[in-house]
Design a protein around this nucleic acid. Structure first.
Lengths: 237, 237
DNA sequence: GCATCCGAGTGTACGCCGTACACCTCAACC
DNA sequence: GGTTGAGGTGTACGGCGTACACTCGGATGC
C-alpha cells in the first residue's frame, strides 16, 4: 500500500489550540471549556494540549490575546474624542462577539502584551489630544469600568501576595523595559504619585472612584436641569 | 456517666452556613470556597450543607444576600444627588470588604430580593428628585458599571436559554407581583420600550452604552478645556 | 412510658475536572 | 541508518459537586 489512508491529521500548534478554545467558549459557554472537552474538539488526547500551553490559566491568557487582537487598530490622524470613541466601541463589539470575554478579561491580573498595547495606544490618544498626564490618569480610571483595562495594580508588584518575591535588580530591569515599551502607561501611572519613586505606590483608588462617580453625577444633573427628556439621538425603530 | 461531654455542637442553619461561607471567601478567596472546605470549617460532613442550601449556586446567591444587606439603607430626607452618592459609596465599602463580591455579583443572573430592593430604592431616589422615568432608565445604565446592578436582562425571561419555559399565566402572575413590589423598576424598565407590551423587549443597550460613554467623554472634555490639571479636592497626604 | 415520625447529619459512590509522569512514535538530521 | 527530540498517548491521583440511601435523636401523640 502506498502512503497511508488516515486523515492528514494536521499538526497541532498553539494558535490552533487558542482558536479552538475561543470557538468552543463562544458556542458552548466559558463554563463548558475544559481541557478535556477542548482536546476532544481537536481530536486529540487531553494531555496533548499541554505541549502547547502550560496550563489552563495560560490557555485563558492566550484566548485573551486572540480576542484583544480583534479590536480595531487606532484610527490615524483623528481627533482624540472621536479616536477614543471608535476604539472603545470597537472593543465593545468584540465583547459582544465573545460574551465570556468580560469575565475572563476581568479575572486576569497578569496583563498580557496585547492588553498592554491596547492600553498604551488609548492613553496615547488622550496625551496626543493635549491632556495632562494627571488628567489622563483619572480619565483612564473613569473609562476603566467600560473598557476593563486600567486598574491600580498595573504596576503594583504586591498585587498578588502568593507570588514569590522578585530580585530588586530584576524588578528594576523589568521597569526599564516597561518604560521603553510603554512610556505612556508609565507616565500616567506615576503622575498621581506624591513621592519620586518610579515604582508607583499605587494610586488613591477611592479618589479615582469618586472622580468618575462625580463626573457621571454632574452629567446627570446637567441633563436633568436642562430639561432632558428624550434622547439626543432619534430612537425611532 | 451523666449527660455527655462532647461540645454542644450547635445546630447548623442556613444563616450559619451563609455567614461561614462569606467568612471563608473573605479570608481564603472565592476560589478556595468549596462545599467540602466549607463543611470542614463548620465541623460537618459535606452533604450536611445540602440540608440548608440546594446546591452551590444557591449558596452563592445566599452569600450575595448577606453582603448586599451590609449596604447602608437610604438616608431619609436627603436630596437625590447626595443620597445616591452615599448609597453607591456604601456599596463600594462593602465591595472593598469582600474582594470576591464583584465577580460573584456579576456572575449571578438571577436577581435575589436583596439585590432588587437595592435597585428599587436607588431608582426611587432619582424619581423622587424629579427625574423622568426615561432619564432615570439611562442614568441607571450609566451608573451600572459602577454599581453592578442594572442590566438589560432584568425582566428578560429569555436571558437564560437553558431555563425551562414557563407557563404564560405563571409569568403574568410573576409580573404582577413584580409590579407591586418593584414599581419603580417596572416603570423605568418599560420607559424606553416603543411598543406597549408590559414585558419589556429589552432595551437598546448599544444606545445605553453610548449614552454613558458620551456622558463621560463630554465630562472629560469639559474638564480638559477648563484647564483642569490638579484635583478639585486637595490631595496632600 | 412508649411508639412514631421526621428532619439534621452521615457514608459511599459517581462522573467530572486539571495535570504529573512515564512512555511511545516518527520525521529530521548527521 | 542510527540518534534525537518534539509531539502525542495512557495511566493515575487528588479534588470537585452532588445523588442516594442510611442513621440517629429529639419532638409529638397516645
Amino acid at each position: 500500500m502506498a502512503q497511508v489512508l488516515v486523515v492528514p491529521r494536521v499538526r497541532l500548534n498553539r494558535d490552533r489550540v487558542l482558536q479552538a478554545a475561543v470557538g468552543l467558549a463562544d458556542q458552548a459557554g466559558i463554563e463548558a471549556l475544559s481541557m478535556r472537552r477542548l482536546a476532544e474538539e481537536l481530536g486529540v488526547v487531553p494531555m496533548a494540549l499541554y505541549k502547547h500551553v502550560a496550563n489552563k490559566d495560560e490557555l485563558l491568557d492566550g484566548m485573551v490575546e486572540v480576542i484583544v487582537a480583534e479590536i480595531d487598530p487606532p484610527a490615524p490622524d483623528t481627533e482624540w474624542k472621536a479616536a477614543v470613541r471608535l476604539r472603545v466601541l470597537s472593543a465593545r463589539q468584540m465583547l459582544l462577539r465573545h460574551p465570556w470575554a468580560r469575565s475572563v478579561l476581568e479575572s486576569r491580573t497578569t496583563h498580557t502584551p496585547a492588553v498592554l498595547d491596547y492600553l498604551e495606544s488609548t492613553i496615547g490618544m488622550f496625551l496626543a489630544g493635549g491632556f495632562s498626564a494627571d488628567l489622563t490618569h483619572h480619565v483612564m480610571h473613569a473609562l476603566g469600568s467600560r473598557m476593563w483595562g486600567f486598574t491600580q495594580e498595573l504596576f503594583d508588584a504586591s498585587a498578588d501576595p502568593a507570588r514569590p518575591p522578585v530580585d530588586p535588580a530584576v524588578q528594576a530591569a523589568r521597569m526599564q523595559a516597561m518604560a521603553e515599551r510603554y512610556p505612556h502607561i508609565l507616565q500616567i501611572s506615576t503622575a498621581a504619585a506624591h513621592d519620586d519613586s518610579v515604582v508607583a505606590h499605587g494610586c488613591d483608588d477611592r479618589f479615582e472612584f469618586e472622580f468618575a462617580l462625580d463626573l457621571l453625577l454632574d452629567g446627570f444633573e446637567r441633563l436633568h436641569v436642562s430639561g432632558w427628556s428624550s434622547s439626543p439621538v432619534t430612537r425611532t425603530a
